[in-house]
Design a protein around this nucleic acid. Structure first.
Length: 858
RNA sequence: GCCGAGGUGGCGGAAUUGGUAGACGCGCUAGAUUCAGGAUCUAGUGUCCGCAAGGACGUAGGGGUUCGAGUCCCCUCCUCGGCACCA
């Protein structure tokens, strides 16, 4: 397989080994196997038209190093790749060019696959998956049917983020500072019928599950904050003007209730119309209307200035019995808690600000535990004052006592709230998974359940919606009818009405539906039989997150058309042992996937309850100027060009050498020379100018003790560093070893062999090539990983630094087990040291064996 | 504003439990080789004083603990990431 070229001709070496690996299926993962398994996974790439960038290269080099290393360590390694190919950019491109998104996707995938192969990653390409493949999204739809059956999917007409430029609705998470995350277009609120997934039902478990994960702390903290668990109390306030009606609020500081001097409800609160008195109606209506038109930006980020309007009504503070005014203000959010609060301006900054602005009374009902009258608002926990029978209790005691007190009255209880919202799970787009449901009338729904029998499973509470005054029922398709494929359409242009292009496909949309088989014929045709019912398909499609929520399971069994994954394969491979991808997915993808995984766990599909045990985020590669790479800045480095000039082994090695894998690091095009010289220098140590194995390489054991010791130190360091993903220092260590080899007169074949094994995960092409040229006959990719021999690591002499009063004054070479007294004598005999001891008394001696001797004098 | 991570030569970055700060690489300087350029090789390269030996200073800034601090503690400044009226 090797060549006879005298030069380090990476342009011929690299493609040749890539072809060899492919033709001989070297990296195919097979199961079952006697070997222990190791599953390393990259985050699902979106095959964009732009192709691979350096960030991809860094990500995949890290995982490839781990995969190759683990293989050499004797593991059966599963290292797959696939395509998260539904989504907006492809559809937008299709809209622009008139090409079918399917064709755009296919072209992009081809580009990506070719580029991936050109960086030499050892994926098992036979397990490639694609979310847009009906054989794949059939199971995405299957999972959705389970969510539906479990009552975890529902439909709601609610104000959502509508982006006019993208012609679609966005999830909360896709809106950043009032602009779309993709493209930065302005967004507005608009009510639309939406599918929503009840992720909040899993809030507690998603929070709990974080504890045992080997994830970056920052990511765990972000998820924790996103879930935002908050313990507090719900309390119902009577309304003076509306006897019998209650206003329910949520507070985390029920101990401050004696200081509640007014109430605030969100502009969208359902009680607004009834609370509003005639005198206030004009003002209130104007305010509510204005709030509805405000963008998120205006309402939160920029306008910290409090606004609000008095409704004219009053609540009765249940603690004091006093009437307090009810205001409307948009600093209270309808989507959190109950959409209403009791305002305690003395002990809450926001309420304080509002009270000052509108001249509402401010009371002091909490004092610090150590007394005093701090400036208001005082928001720390403390001791209750001016609080009737509760005066004197601490915040903690007060909360418990008041919860019990209000519970006894039937007007309150302790409760928990989450910032986490249910997951908006629909897009008004073409290029996504269709929902496998049919909208039918109430009567047909009942009839269909009878007809279909066990073929379909529905939630206890039917999912319904009202379109143009007509009520519709969501009837699931039978699992046997999956996948529900996308119809061919003329145009992918968004309708702009909030409906997807699918809404224009009348024959696909309006159908006669058979509930038990899932068959359909266009409604324009005659009804095929009595059990067929009139239905309308769902025009929304699923968001891009859907396909990436469970793909790590499909790699275990990518071609199975009977089930999502064979349980035996699942038992063997399990979930990924290491998951590598960018920190930008810290909350969204990683939270959604955990949610789906827990649902799959609950219905017995997967035995483990978390998908990603160990997570690693690679850092971003910045441009030369230290700024984020972007076309507009003109600081983008193109991997193809680097590979053309230096080869992919050099690129891979340099990406690792740049700095810690998790750190943000600037790309420096000059530095790559050093890494290239390293590889070429290695080549020249092994191959002479005739193209033969260099005469410097000799048979037999290593003769040079210094080289031998360094070799074993290197084995030790490289192994430990790969395990901990400290890949930058691995490269340094290999350079140190090569420098030593270069200095030596001769080097043993065995030393070179081991060196190549250590290098192989990082620079596999040159390692394979030199290995072969050396005449090695076994496979470097699976040859057992070298082990450091502890006997070879021992040194006869160690360097001990001698300090006087903490300052280095000399050094000694001593045997490691030299007694302290002897070392001290040697130090005193040292001329330089003596100069600093003369005329002074030795007060203390600190000796760290083999490291340092500190003589304290005075 | 809140939470978190970080600040080490001209540059990217190394530094077990506190124990030679600056490994490795880039760049730079000098020399060798070369018609030249490039490439390669050798030596040097934290700052300051000094011919040198040697010494002083030095890990954002200030204070502290310690025989000894890049590393531990307190304060300040700066950079980056996340959250941002969640009651």
């Amino acid at each position: 397989m090797g060549t006879t070229s005298p030069d380090y001709d990476f342009r011929s070496i690299e493609p040749r080994w890539q072809k060899y690996w492919h033709d001989n299926r070297i990296f195919r993962a097979t199961a079952p196997s006697e070997k222990p398994k190791y599953y390393v996974l990259d985050m699902f790439p979106y095959p964009s038209g732009a192709g691979l960038h350096l960030g991809h290269c860094e990500n995949y080099t890290i995982s490839d190093i781990v995969a190759r290393y683990k293989r050499a360590c004797g593991y059966n390694v599963l290292y797959p790749i696939g395509w998260d190919a539904f989504g907006l950019p492809t559809e937008n491109y299709a809209v622009k060019t008139g090409k079918h998104p399917r064709d755009v996707t296919r072209d992009n995938v081809e580009t990506f696959r070719r580029q991936l192969k050109s960086i030499g990653v050892s994926y098992d390409f036979e397990r490639e998956i694609n979310t847009t493949d009906p054989g794949y999204f059939r199971w995405t739809q299957w999972i959705w049917l389970q969510l539906f059956r479990l009552g975890l999917a529902y439909v709601e007409e609610k104000p959502v983020w509508w982006c006019p430029a993208l012609g679609t609705v966005l999830a909360n998470e896709e809106v950043i500072d009032g602009k779309s995350e993709v493209g930065g277009h302005p967004v507005e609120r608009r009510p639309l019928r939406q599918w929503v997934l009840r992720i909040t039902a899993y809030a507690d478990r998603l929070l709990e599950g974080l504890k045992d994960l080997d994830w970056p702390d920052s990511t765990k903290r972000m998820q924790e904050a996103w879930i935002g668990r908050s313990e507090g109390s719900e309390v119902e306030f009577d309304i003076q003007e509306l006897p019998g009606e209650k206003l329910k609020i949520f507070t985390t500081r029920v101990d401050t209730i004696f200081g509640a001097t007014y109430m605030v409800i969100a502009p969208e609160h359902p009680l607004v119309p009834r609370l509003t008195t005639d005198a206030q109606r004009q003002q209130v209506e104007a305010y509510v209307k204005a709030a509805a038109n405000k963008s998120d930006l205006e309402r939160t980020d920029l306008a910290k200035d409090k606004t609000g309007v008095f409704t004219g009504s009053h609540a009765i503070n249940p603690a004091t019995g006093q009437p307090i005014p009810i205001w409307i203000a948009d600093y209270v959010l309808i989507s959190y808690g109950t959409g209403a609060i009791m305002a305690v301006p003395g002990h809450d900054e926001r309420d304080y600000e509002f009270a000052r602005k509108f001249d509402l009374p401010i009371l002091r009902v909490i004092e610090p535990l150590d007394g005093g009258e701090p400036e208001l608002p005082f928001c720390e926990p403390g001791r209750m004052i001016n609080s009737g029978e509760f005066t004197g209790l601490t915040t903690e005691e007060g909360k418990a006592r008041l919860n019990a007190h209000f519970a006894a009255q039937g007007r309150g209880r302790g409760t928990v709230n989450y910032k986490l919202r249910d997951w908006l799970f629909s897009r008004q787009r073409y290029w996504g998974e269709p929902f496998p449901i049919v909208w039918v009338s109430r009567e047909d729904y009942q009839a269909a359940l009878a007809t279909a029998g066990d073929a379909i499973a529905v939630p206890e509470q039917p999912v319904t919606c009202v379109i143009d005054g007509v009520e519709w029922y969501a009837l699931p398709m039978p699992e046997s009818a999956l996948p529900l494929e996308l119809p061919e359409v003329e145009s992918y242009q968004p309708t702009g009405t909030g409906e997807s292009p699918l809404a224009a496909m009348t024959d696909w949309l309006e159908i006669w539906h058979h509930p038990a088989t899932g068959e359909a014929v266009p409604a324009s045709q005659p009804r095929p039989g009595p059990e067929w019912i009139r239905g309308r398909r769902e025009t929304n499609t699923m968001p891009q997150w859907a396909g990436s929520c469970w793909y790590y399971l499909r790699y275990l069994d990518p071609h199975n058309d009977q089930q999502l994954v064979d349980p035996e394969l699942l038992a063997y491979w399990g979930t990924p042992d290491l998951y590598i991808g960018g920190a930008e997915h810290a909350v969204l993808h990683l939270l959604y996937a955990r949610f789906w995984h827990k649902v799959l766990h609950d219905i017995g599909v997967v035995p483990m309850d978390e998908p990603f045990k160990r997570l690693f985020h690679q850092g971003i590669i910045l441009g030369e100027d230290g700024e984020k790479m972007s076309k507009s800045r003109g600081n983008v480095a193109n991997p193809d060009e680097v590979i053309e000039q230096y080869g992919t082994d050099t690129l891979r090695l340099y990406l690792m050498f740049l700095g810690p894998p998790e750190a943000m690091k600037p790309w420096n095009p000059k530095g790559i020379e050093g890494v290239f010289r390293f590889l070429r220098g290695l080549w020249r140590e092994v191959i002479d100018s005739e193209g033969n194995v260099s005469a410097k390489v000799v048979d037999g054991p290593e003769q040079d003790p210094e080289t031998e010791r360094l070799l074993h130190q290197t084995i030790e360091k490289v192994t430990a560093d790969i395990e901990h993903l400290r890949l930058n220092t691995v490269v340094s260590q290999l350079m140190i070893l090569r420098n030593q080899i270069q200095k030596a007169q001769t080097v043993s074949r065995q030393t070179i062999r081991t060196f190549l094994q250590l290098l192989q995960p990082f620079a596999p092409h040159i390692a394979n090539e030199l290995w072969t040229r050396l005449g090695e006959t076994d496979d470097i990719n699976t040859a057992p990983w070298p082990k450091a021999d502890p006997d070879k690591l021992v040194v006869e002499q160690v360097k001990v630094m001698v300090q006087v009063n903490g300052k280095v004054r000399g050094q000694l070479m001593v045997a490691p087990d030299t007694p302290e007294a002897e070392v001290v004598e040697m130090a005193r005999a040292n001329e330089r040291v003596r100069a600093h001891l003369d005329g002074k008394t030795l007060r203390k001696v600190i000796y760290v064996p083999g490291r340092i001797l500190n003589l304290v004098v005075g």
